[in-house]
Design a binder for these strands. Sequence first.
DNA 1: CCTTGACCTTCCCGTCGCGGGAAGGACCAT
DNA 2: ATGGTCCTTCCCGCGACGGGAAGGTCAAGG
Lengths: 136, 136
Amino acid sequence: MNIGEAARASGLPAKTLRYYEAIGLVVPAHRQPNGYRDYSETDVRRLRFVQRARSLGFSVAECRELLALYADRGRTSAEVRRIALARIAAIERKLRELEGMRRALLHLVERCSGDSRPDCPILDDLAGEDDDQGAA
Amino acid sequence: MNIGEAARASGLPAKTLRYYEAIGLVVPAHRQPNGYRDYSETDVRRLRFVQRARSLGFSVAECRELLALYADRGRTSAEVRRIALARIAAIERKLRELEGMRRALLHLVERCSGDSRPDCPILDDLAGEDDDQGAA
DNA sequence: CCTTGACCTTCCCGTCGCGGGAAGGACCAT
DNA sequence: ATGGTCCTTCCCGCGACGGGAAGGTCAAGG
């Protein structure tokens, strides 16, 4: 199977397939006589596996681990679970960070009139104004 | 003021200050006779401004716009507000994406025994198994 | 005077996960 | 022969820096 077909079958761009080969993540076993990459059904399964894992937020390094476990009959589900839990923890850290930003930005936007005047509490806050005008 | 002092005063690494100079974001006006960068109080204010904006999730490009508006007496708060709303929208897109991943991963982890056996619904899902065993 | 150490300079490479595009070969149909 | 579509390798670019080499500068101490 040509790289184009494998790309369509896996839902990944051909560029990505070449990249995955370059980093040794999914390497098609053979080349056709004309030098074209030759992807097998198994290769495509691995590519789809990676595509799904990536869409769940796993890094390429984690995909490599997961693929290894997938291929390892002696694996334990505890190993897989550990990786997934680590990913969840990382996602939750990021969620908290983004939620903090969102809260702060919403607070600022709320107080900004957004009209034609130059006065802007958003810029004031970024400038680190230390006014205590609300103390009355 | 040396780069080290400016770094401490702004809460940014010296490397970042050099980077901001290289991309023309915050460029100290002068050099000392020995070739050292010379940051003014105004430079440090700009650096702190960028540091705060970055911590709110603004890209360096957005920081550039915000700095320009900050310096522009003819600005309107509507312009600033527009940038902040765009950032909020981007953050919320990312939040939704991460929440989707989190939900999917939690669902998978929940069903994984995480013991010494190799059977793992997480890997099964990534492999794209099409079993409809739950249809009973 | 010399050394030590802390600071500064420029420069270039690495990160992560690819995308864009050039230059050229291969294949298929007309 | 020609055109169009595929494929190949190669190298550069992103964002926002961090690491580290090689070397200049400065203040303190022996």
